[in-house]
Design a protein around this nucleic acid. Structure first.
Length: 423
RNA sequence: GGAGGAAUGGCAGAGUGGUCGAAUGCGGCAGUCUUGAAAACUGUUGAGGGUCACACCUCCGGGGGUUCGAAUCCCUCUUCCUCCGCCA
């Protein structure tokens, strides 16, 4: 959620930057400013009425004490009028506040200056590429075929137990998953991230805090009996650690990492691009998350990008980094870098990490602030990224490391898997 | 799941209808003293809205109600504690 004072003071900039997302926000911005003016006017009016009421109440108290009951009763009549007024004012104030909030929830974050304009993923800007794309042997297979051939992932079994998009990992496949999780967590903690184990279900307030609710409600599994939601990413419980929090400036930066399964309904997805591990309803992910001083958040973003790079270098997977264009940028993000691994057998790039700076957009909704060294409360910046999302990394490993007599395990993982080949 | 108790400022803890935004202690900050520190003493110390700054308004777990007036009374929800039951 954008900050109203910021909108008021940088109206033109906000509109110009939002245009990168191909939205004309001028009307919404004018409405925000107008509603905010209304809000403040009503608030002042209400405050004055309440002040009058408070004074009268004190007077009445005094009159009762000195036994002047008649005078007191006279004043009481006056208060009932004022009370009626406050009731009305309160109602219109609430209506205005609600209208303002609803509008604010609809406005996405202001893209950073360097975000390219554009509509779709075709307009994303490739900023880096590394790693050789292997030349595969004759008869190389896509990962879902490999999974079957070596009996390490059973998609049909998942269909039976739950439904499409809930694969069962078996034997070395399961062990490789566990190895990846352990390796990612070790790598992240070595880089200064504190490991957390977080709840996999969250309440309404948390879903709201990170912006999944009310808009993307249909993307989460909802446990109606208890009104809880299965997390679509560790970002939700992870970021909500800091909901309604006032930190000290020297608490910053905060860096945490956590492994969680992620559950996504993915309503509306279909076709070849959802085959195999490409798109699942349940998958595993290790997330990194930072709370930063506003002056440091872009350095931190670069740091996160470098960290994810080093993981992919360790795994020796061919990858590229994209700077997302305005049209592809997530609602809450100001700047996002996507990492994609090349899936050789499918001949396409698969997104395996998304690293974003949300600036104050999440913090504002969460009320995540810190007391700066001047004693003023300031919104912190939040950032997060995947390090990494498992299924597509697994797909990348299976496909890129396949040989005629088995799938090799990247060296960096061998101490975690306990084997060096799947065959 | 059943029975009972509780929720107040960073923490502890008073406060059961009116000068209570809230005593007191601890902690934090500033000062005096000291070469420096500790101790002692003095002062200061919640958040949000609003204002150039004041004024002013709101907030004593959340929501609603009674009253001229609520931290204090009523309803409701949530959380925590104790006991019983169940249980990885």
């Amino acid at each position: 959620m954008l900050q109203v004072p910021f909108i008021r003071e940088h109206k033109d900039l906000v509109i110009a930057r939002l245009a990168k997302r191909n939205i004309d926000a001028s009307k919404m911005i004018d409405d925000v400013i107008g509603l905010d003016e209304d809000r403040r006017r009503m608030q002042t009016e209400l405050d004055n009425t309440l002040a009058e009421l408070n004074t009268l109440s004190k007077e009445i108290g005094g009159l009762y004490k000195s036994g002047e009951v008649e005078k007191a009763n006279l004043l009481k009549k006056k208060t009932s009028q004022l009370k009626e007024q406050t009731k009305e004012l309160n109602e219109s104030l609430n209506a205005t506040v609600e209208a303002l909030s609803e509008l604010l929830y609809k406005i996405p974050n202001v893209p950073n200056e360097i975000v390219p304009s554009g509509n779709t993923d075709e307009d994303n800007e490739e900023v880096y590429r590394e790693g050789d794309i292997p030349v595969l042997h004759e008869g190389a297979l896509p990962h879902w075929e490999l999974a079957k051939k070596y009996d390490i992932i059973d998609f049909e079994l998942g269909n039976k137990i739950t439904g499409a998009g809930f694969p069962v990992y078996k034997g070395k496949g399961a062990r490789l998953q566990r190895a990846l999780i352990a390796y990612f967590l070790d790598k992240n903690t070595a880089a200064g991230y504190t490991e957390y184990q977080l709840p996999h279900l969250v309440n309404e307030a948390s879903g709201f805090g990170t912006g999944q609710l009310p808009d993307k409600e249909g993307q989460m599994y909802h446990v109606t009996e208890d009104n809880l939601y299965l997390i679509p990413t560790a970002e939700v419980p992870g970021t909500n650690i800091f909901r309604d929090t006032l930190l000290n400036e020297n608490d910053l930066p905060i860096a945490i990492t956590g492994y969680t399964p992620c559950f996504r309904r993915e309503a509306g997805s279909y076709g070849a691009h959802v085959r195999g591990l490409n798109r699942l309803h349940q998958f595993d992910k290790v997330e990194i998350l930072r709370v930063e001083h506003p002056s440091q958040s872009y350095n931190a973003l670069d740091g996160m990008v470098n960290h994810v790079k080093s993981i992919l270098q360790d795994l020796k997977l061919p990858y590229r980094i994209l700077r997302l264009c305005g049209g592809d940028l997530g609602f809450t993000s100001a700047l996002t870098y996507d990492f994609e691994v090349f899936s050789t057998a499918q001949d396409r790039w698969l997104e395996i990490s998304s690293v974003s700076n949300f600036e104050t957009f999440q913090a504002n909704r969460l009320k995540l602030r810190f007391k700066n060294n001047n004693g003023k409360n300031e919104l912190a910046h939040t950032l997060n990224g995947s390090a990494l999302a498992l299924p597509r990394v697994l797909a990348g490993i299976l496909e890129n490391y396949q040989t005629e007599d088995g799938i090799l395990i990247p060296e960096a993982l061998q101490s975690y898997t306990g084997f060096s080949k799947i065959n």
